[in-house]
Amino acid sequence: MTQAPTIAFQIFQSILVVLAAPLLMGWVNQCRAWLQNRSAPSILLPYYTLAKLFHKDAVIAEHASPLFRLTPYILFGCMWLAGGIVPVLATALPFAPAADIIALVAVFALARVFAALAAMDIGTSFGGLGARREMLIGFLAEPAMLMTLFTAAFISGSTQLTTIVDVLAHRQFVIQPSLAFAAVAFLMVLLAENARIPIDNPTTHLELTMVHEAMILEYSARHLALIEWGAAIKLFAYMTIGFALFAPWGIATAGDWAGLPLAIAALVAKLAVAGAGLALIETVSAKFRLFRAPEFLSTAFLLAVLGMLTHFLLRT
């Protein structure tokens, strides 16, 4: 477990996730602009935005508590950690046994709780509103995500993402109907957790309809940059979780540098397709009323549960 190459792989992947995440964001925005017949911004725009934000002076409300200033770092740290757990390029990462899928979901939950707490710290009405809505979405999205992952865990007999990917990628060809349910549920959770249409609109400027944006209204400059960057990493991590569960082809094993080019090529291709798909979904659907969101997510939750059931029931 203390082999240098696998640790080098781990560090390489962690840095890659952090650096590449804004690029994915830029790609999704570009695709969406094309689909909506707008002239697309540069794919590098998220980087420029982050650089601009880091250079500015942070403005903080007078009575903000230390929790408020600490939260952006915790959010960014949690997302980075998640990016280190998920097998993005390779399985058998040295850090993977330290946290399994349940811990992964809990890392996202930790970030959510801190984000919601920070939103309530200043004591403005919109902050509280955003926190309340975020927790409303979270309380269903989180178990739905967990159940989706459990379906994969039952198939592979393990809660280690590494083992799950190994089993799913390298087994003989067996169709798993339960994964179809899980995939639908996962897609719904991905949309909700990353504040995407139809649950939330990442580009909105209307406070009353905001969810995620309402929570971070008080943040500026480097704090905001860290939160935005964290959100980009979160999207990246979610997409790679999706690949790990439903399209694990081409992934390398940690320490196997020869497999790396193929793994990177496969990852880029998968991300390009998934990003375009996300832009397409966001283009063709409209944002739900807030109280349709629980219905949407409870459907996802029940679908994931159903996936688990079908796994047991179709096993002859």
Binding site: V174, I175, P177, A180, E295, L303, T310
Partner: peptide
Amino acid sequence: MGTSLAGQMVNLLAAFLLLVAFAMLSQ
């Protein structure tokens, strides 16, 4: 049928049938 490819496909379609049945419930 069992583990043959056709059997698996039938299983997959069965799951799809169930999925559609639930989709109808929620539509």
